[in-house]
Design a protein around this nucleic acid. Structure first.
Length: 499
RNA sequence: GGCGCCAUGGUGUAAUUGGUUAACACGUCGCCCUCUCAAGGCGAAGAGUACGGGUUCGAUCCCCGUUGGCGCUACCA
């Protein structure tokens, strides 16, 4: 059972629940480097077991974004491999078979409690200031009851039977031993009533079946690692090594989120960040690259070179043991500086090519053109009508964005509502229109007021091509970011004038 | 609340693993260059390493406690 003989195999397992996330890219990069350093394999697995959050277009965006960043995988849903399928929704039979093994050896049991019952119990526990935990009602159900329930067609989940005392100890390769008392481990649902597995089951089964040697994932998983360790032993399997990486943070140190940061890889690509810069920046998060010694630094010519490196250099020099465990703030300011460095270093031909691939691409211009064709008299007016599509900063004056009968405060509050609503909207004119109208009716805003506000935020002006179409063309990721930045900027400005 | 993880300038990281005036990069400010703005060059301010105790001749580094931040606490991942 020595793992030294096993060839290194690592994986990332994103969920297709929306836009591909920078956190996925971060963990992806780390896994990629880890595999390359050891001549191992890097696997992409799609964890699409939550049908309520499933977004059909998400998977392809994940593929595209990771490829854009240059993080190629050896095995995955789209490239195949010997351990497929690599999409969990296609592996439900495997999970059911495995959960049966657990049922057979008594390390799992059926639970007939309804979501409502569970919710009520949880509330009661919270009210009593007790740690919310499943009370094991169904753990010791008599055989006859279980069979009767099944015969009656009562829906059930399957839970893991966590030992009622003792503790689980595991080793985190970066932190050392971590001990968690079983009192603090819930009887986790392994198989949902819809027949799909939860993360915990699917993850362990797949990692084992796919021969994963090292689990390199975000720190948020530490607390549930005992569940996974317990599962490995319930199955009688050797467990992988666990490496928990620090969590990327917002400026306020909270876990990075779309409310406070552009978090979509689509955003970075569409806003004209270079993949090398994004990857380089991610490589800076948490350290890991050894500092140049003074001689190397002198040879490099400039000390800032220590912050600039490629994936190849990371593969060569990155040391996982050097990673610092404090969650790094994802600082857009430094990313922009880095991106500027890469842009300036580009040969002119490549710089032009980069423009033509992104912000000046044929496909982008093609979708903008119909919006302005009827509105211009000479081609020279193109820029007048479309500038906001090509700009990063638009700053509408207050007389444009504050409706006559509203105060700046209530307008900003409405903008914030709009942001929340649009975040959860499909990016089509119909869906945006519906969302907007629902909101404005609820808040008693006129169509004119609401649309003008959004127009001002998006374009910086009171005149523009059709708003909804413009939003769609500009893209969800960038539109959302523009609204968010507008609100932030106005709040800052208001705070400053008060001082 | 419970459990866990973490803690070096505003931000990201260094500090030959206990011996330095605590270093580098971003950002900020100033100067130079310059038709402007960037870029580039030069320089400055900014932490005494969260706090309090130990251990030690000596702690950023080891130990304990406190505080704070973050995460988890779902039929989400």
């Amino acid at each position: 059972m020595t793992d030294s003989a096993r060839p290194t195999r690592v994986r990332i397992a994103p969920s297709p629940t929306g836009d591909p996330h920078v956190g996925t890219a971060y963990i992806g990069l780390l896994n990629y480097i880890f595999a390359r350093q050891r001549g191992g394999q890097f696997i992409l697995r799609i964890e699409d077991t939550d049908r309520t959050r499933f977004v059909p277009t998400s998977e392809q965006m994940i593929f595209d974004s990771l490829r854009w960043l240059g993080l190629d995988w050896n095995e995955g849903p789209d490239v195949g491999g010997p351990y497929g399928p690599y999409r969990q929704s296609e592996r439900t039979k495997i999970y059911r078979e495995h959960v049966q093994m657990l049922l057979n050896n008594g390390t799992a049991y059926r639970c007939f409690c309804t979501p409502e019952e569970l919710e009520a119990k949880r509330k009661a526990q919270m009210a009593a200031k007790v740690a919310p935990k499943y009370d094991r009602t169904c753990k010791y159900l008599p055989k006859e009851t279980i069979e009767a329930n099944i015969a009656a067609g009562k829906p059930f989940t399957i839970r893991m039977a966590v030992p009622e005392d003792g503790s689980t100890t595991f080793r985190d390769e970066l932190r050392g031993e971590i001990v968690i008392d079983h009192n603090n481990v819930d009887d986790q649902v392994l198989l949902k009533s819809d027949g799909f597995p939860t993360y915990h089951l699917a993850n362990v089964v797949d990692d084992h079946l796919m021969q994963i040697t090292d689990v390199i994932r975000a720190e948020e998983w530490i607390s549930s690692t005992p569940k996974h360790v317990l599962l490995y032993s319930s199955f009688g399997w050797e467990r992988p090594k666990f490496w928990h990486m620090p969590l990327l943070r917002n400026i306020d140190k909270s876990k990075i989120s779309k409310r406070k940061n552009p978090v979509s890889l689509i955003y970075y690509r569409e806003s004209g960040f270079l993949p090398q810069a994004v990857i380089n920046f991610l490589g800076l998060m948490g350290g890991g690259m050894p500092t140049l010694n003074p001689i190397e630094a002198a040879n490099a010519g400039s000390t800032k070179e220590v912050d600039i490196f490629s994936v190849a250099q990371m593969v060569e020099k990155f040391e996982f043991q050097r990673i610092s465990l404090g969650g790094p703030v994802f600082d857009l300011v430094k990313l922009k500086w880095l991106n500027g460095e890469y842009l300036r270093a580009l040969p002119q031909e490549e710089f032009v090519a980069a423009l033509k691939q992104t912000i000046l691409s044929d496909s982008y211009i093609r979708v903008i053109a119909p919006l302005v064709q009827t509105r211009l008299e000479t081609l020279g007016q193109w820029g007048d009508l479309t500038d906001f599509f090509f700009r990063d900063n638009v700053a509408p004056p207050a007389e444009v964005w504050v409706p006559k009968k509203r105060t700046p405060e209530e307008t900003l509050a409405f903008a914030a509502e709009m942001l929340t609503s649009l975040e959860g909207t499909d990016w089509t004119t119909e869906a945006i229109d519906a969302a907007l109208r629902a909101l404005l009716t609820a808040k008693e805003w006129s169509v004119k007021e609401a649309f003008m506000l959004l127009r001002a935020i998006l374009t910086g002006s009171a005149q523009s091509p059709p708003l909804l179409e413009s939003l769609v063309v500009f893209g969800k990721a960038r539109s959302i970011d523009r609204i968010r930045r507008f609100i932030d900027n106005q709040k800052k400005a208001a705070a400053n004038t008060k001082k």
